[in-house]
Amino acid sequence: MELLRGALTVAWKDVRLELRSREVIASALVFGLIVVVVFNFGLNRSPGSLEPVAPGLLWVAYAFIGVLAMNRAFTRELENGGMDGLLLAPVSRDAVFLGKMLGSLAFMLVIEAILLPVFAVMLDLPTLSPALGLVILLATVGFATVGTFFSGIAVQTRSREILLPILFFPVVVPVIIAAVEASALALQSGPMTGVWTRWLPLLIVFDALYLVICPWIFGYVFEG
């Protein structure tokens, strides 16, 4: 309970700050749109033929947005040394981690929810299904967990913009693969067994593993 109280306090503070400044969500939304537009030029296909690569584009865009959003979420903490404030408080490091993670998760889900219909139009995705929603939720939990952890390291260095993607992408490869494959299946009209028997369990295992490991070692990241 102590853990949850601390985590929710931190997360709510981040939400409140975001409602004030809107800097994370606004910049990520614009960036997401630009990514899709650039993809279109890069692939230069005739209309409609983007369908086979659409799930891939969706997740590459989401992954880039995730890195951007999480970097911002932590940079704000360093503005006036807010991270020291969190570490001084008698809340456990796990709670601080979970709070930052829940905040980033909320931002990313909002961004993804806004961008999904836009992508559906621009990439000509056939349908939107509940299965896709579940995939997005689980994959975003994975992104937010690993991303929050590594941005905790990256923001303390001079080269934070480059260090976060270098740490983040190799580790979340399983999430990206599972998300792309599961989305492709979920968007098809055919049977979706692969989503349930293979990709969702993989996402759940990944999320569970990192939700256990990351809070455990997060304390070491901020000991100066």
Binding site: R5, T9, K13, L17, R20, N80, G81, D84, L88, V91
Partner: peptide, 27 residues
């Protein structure tokens, strides 16, 4: 209680909101 070179405050929150946040953290 600690006060250092940095203020440990959030620029986009009001004075009261900053203190409310820390009050909640300390229970």
């Amino acid at each position: 209680g600690f006060a250092g070179h940095q203020t440990l405050l959030y620029n986009d929150l009001t004075c009261r909101e900053n203190l409310e946040f820390y009050a909640k953290l300390y229970g």
